[in-house]
Simulated scan of single mutants.
Amino acid sequence: MNISILGTGFMGRKHKAILEQISNVRINAEIDSHSEPNSDIHFQSLEYFLEEKLETDLVVVATPNYLHFQHTKILLENGYNVLIEKPFVFNLEQAYVLRETALQNDCRVFLVMQNRFSSVTLFLSELVESKKLGKIYNIQLNAFWNRGEQYYIKDSWKGKKNMDGGILYTQFSHLLDLLCCVFKDDFAVLFRDLTSFRNFNISEIEDTALLVLQGKTGTKVSVNFTTSVFEKNQETSLNIIAEKGTLKISGQYFNEITFQHIADCPEKFEIPSTSNEENLKEMYLEIFKSLRGEKNNAILLKDGLGLVDLLEKIYS
């Protein structure tokens, strides 16, 4: 597989490190304005890369958030399959444009939603699909994290409303995606409060979100996210209160069952720990299966539309 990486900042370097661990993968282009000139694989702009007409199986878009849609559309128009970092779009209109552009050019759009391959997500999906919990009454999702002043200073676009998107598009998008992909419900927004307690005179976006959602099944969801925690992350936790049981998952890596009482399940479940790097690697392996025409579980653009719809409802 020949892979090109557009954007060689923090996320681009992370993708490169994962790809270097996978056999039969060659990084044939790194595209960034800070790339070395006069190098065989380094291109200082997307335009220079496109002029070369390199044969590549996949382009990873890891540029700043506000450029994801624009760069992906250009790549699709030039016949490239694309993997987009989060947030892949800011609204459904952009998603539909990319879907149509991909269709017209016989290309595929994949999404970086590696947490769908995490042991927690797979465990919860099996638990919900098997109906062991019965009707789900209430879900509580908490994430109390820290993002200090340096986080916003190091990249000038971070914290800018039209360039960053907001904490639900970035830090907490994976947790909202968990609601969409595990519980497979269409959630309405009953209440929302988006607040900034610490903007450091830099950020234009919220650092705290309080939400109440309701699914068409009647399930109520309360969400409490913040990046204003003092100095270091505190917790990520999920509580499920259901007809046939109660479950809480928490822990530093969101992989520990800290409470379980489920009918016909006397023994406590154990969730094997998988790292973010392992989840990313699994994500790539599924994408490569898709590109080879094999049976796969790759995450395509259509699989992320529910999340975009929910985000649009929250921010509208």
Rank of each mutant, 00 (worst) to 15 (best):
L176I: 05
L178M: 15
L179G: 03
L179Q: 00
L179H: 02
L179E: 01
C181K: 04
F183Q: 04
F187V: 00
A188M: 05
A188I: 08
V189K: 01
V189T: 03
L190A: 09
L190T: 10
F191I: 07
F191V: 08
F191K: 15
R192G: 07
R192T: 13
D193L: 14
D193S: 15
T195L: 12
S196N: 11
S196T: 14
F197M: 09
F197E: 11
F197R: 08
F197H: 14
R198W: 10
R198V: 11
R198G: 07
R198L: 12
N199V: 05
N199P: 05
N199I: 04
N199W: 09
I202N: 03
S203T: 09
S203L: 10
S203R: 01
E204T: 07
I205T: 15
I205R: 03
E206H: 06
E206R: 02
D207G: 07
D207H: 12
D207N: 15
D207Q: 05
D207A: 09
T208W: 01
L210K: 14
L211R: 07
L211M: 08
V212H: 14
L213F: 03
Q214L: 08
G215A: 04
K216V: 11
G218E: 11
T219A: 06
T219R: 04
V221R: 01
V221C: 05
V221E: 02
N224Q: 12
F225L: 03
T226N: 04
T226L: 00
T227F: 04
T227R: 03
S228W: 04
S228R: 10
S228I: 02
S228C: 06
V229Y: 09
F230W: 14
F230Q: 14
F230G: 07
E231Y: 10
N233R: 08
Q234N: 13
Q234S: 13
E235C: 10
E235N: 13
E235Y: 10
E235G: 07
E235S: 13
T236G: 02
S237E: 02
L238S: 03
L238A: 07
N239A: 13
N239L: 13
I240K: 01
I241H: 09
I241R: 08
A242S: 15
A242I: 03
E243A: 06
G245A: 02
G245V: 00
T246Y: 07
L247R: 04
K248E: 10
K248N: 10
K248H: 06
I249G: 02
I249Y: 00
S250V: 11
G251N: 09
G251I: 11
G251W: 07
Y253C: 09
Y253E: 14
F254T: 12
N255R: 05
N255C: 13
N255Y: 06
N255T: 13
E256I: 14
E256M: 14
T258Q: 05
T258I: 15
F259T: 12
F259Q: 14
Q260S: 12
Q260A: 10
Q260R: 10
Q260C: 11
Q260T: 12
H261L: 09
I262F: 07
I262V: 15
A263P: 01
C265V: 13
P266F: 06
E267S: 07
E267R: 08
E267Y: 08
F269C: 06
F269I: 01
P272Q: 04
T274V: 05
T274H: 01
T274F: 00
S275A: 01
S275V: 01
S275F: 04
